[in-house]
């Protein structure tokens, strides 16, 4: 930037000194800021970007740890193998199915829980403490608890549910095994969803609700016209986080069925290729595909919600 005005010499000097000091200061601030975030950036990239690049590199080789010397370049054929294998599509479909069902159910139950927690005036501490227990509990433990609960040898679910025979084997067929897995997933993560939604609820202004009430809006109208539109961003954050988390489902499947009855998820398939069968080549290709599908889902959710946002704005 240049000065066009002509100022007395001394004034100009002062101004220049000021400017130099200011920019020195901001430069120093800039440097300090970058130094402070550098370790965090380094660590985050070390365990994600670097291995991801390595996965992309390995994915074009036929590379098995059981015969590391036979590694050969095969181009994109690992991707071709994965994408033409029905197992890949079955597991992806399973994963999407689990993601859609669990997130939808969690959203409804989580919202109901958030409404109750928002309004409740007694035992707040007790309720919040208990809701944090499923959140904090190890997923593997949740998986075991539900696996044994559904077990026909030692569980209680068969006895408690009407229309279910006492010796019904939940893990003997696809549908019921998936249901058991989803119950464990939903139980463990609904509290997280409800806490995020609770924070969103707290941002809805009470005055607006009161005004709607005075204007004669029913409870149902207040919910759909006042509460939900005003917590759009909280809902979006919750859905985005949970959907991507559900898409990674692994622990519950590992513990409860180990992929039996066709209940494998895409994460489980990738794990099996890499860790159990030492097929780093095809496993890496699956890793890359898994990563790309997560990106795609994140993109789709953001897109879908944008559309919804625009539509809602036009309505209101």
């Amino acid at each position: 930037m240049t000065h066009t005005t002509v100022a007395p010499d001394d004034k100009r000097d002062v101004r220049r000194a000021d400017k130099a000091a200011a920019s020195d200061r901001s430069k120093a601030e800039n440097r300090l800021g970058m130094r402070l975030v550098a370790p965090a950036i380094f660590l985050m990239l070390l365990v994600t970007a670097f291995p991801m690049l390595r996965a992309i590199y390995l994915s074009v080789f036929n590379y098995s740890l059981t015969a590391p010397d036979d590694r050969e370049f095969v181009g994109l054929s690992n991707y071709l193998t994965a994408l033409t294998d029905s197992l890949f599509w079955e597991t992806t479909l399973n994963t999407v199915f689990i993601m859609v069902v669990t997130v939808a159910i969690e959203l409804v139950i989580g919202f109901a829980f958030a409404m109750v927690m928002h309004r409740v005036i007694f035992a707040r501490g007790v309720i919040r403490t208990s809701i944090l227990i499923p959140y904090g509990i190890i997923t593997v433990v949740s998986g075991f608890a539900w696996q044994f609960a559904f077990s026909n040898n030692n569980g209680f679910v068969n006895a408690w549910l009407p229309f279910v025979e006492d010796n019904f084997n939940w893990f003997g067929e696809y549908g019921s095994a998936m249901a058991a897995i989803m119950v464990s997933e939903i139980w463990k993560t609904t509290p997280f969803m409800s806490l995020l939604l609770l924070a969103g609820l707290a941002q809805v202004s009470e005055d607006m609700l009161e005004a709607a009430k005075v204007d004669g809006a029913t409870w149902w109208q207040r919910l759909w016209k006042v509460i939900l539109p005003n917590m759009r961003s909280a809902i979006m954050v919750a859905v985005l986080f949970r959907a991507l988390d559900a898409y990674r489902i692994f622990d519950n499947i590992f513990v409860m069925t180990a992929g039996a009855q066709g209940t494998e998820s895409i994460s489980f398939l990738t794990y099996r290729q890499v860790i159990e069968q030492f097929q780093l080549g095809i496993g890496s290709a699956l890793s890359v595909l898994l990563f790309l599908s997560v990106l795609l889902i994140a993109f789709l959710i953001v897109k879908i919600f944008r559309v919804d946002l625009a539509a809602a704005r036009q309505e209101g």
Partner: peptide, 8 residues
């Protein structure tokens, strides 16, 4: 997706 990293 954490699992995509365990191989590398």
């Amino acid at each position: 997706p954490v699992v995509s990293l365990v191989g590398p």
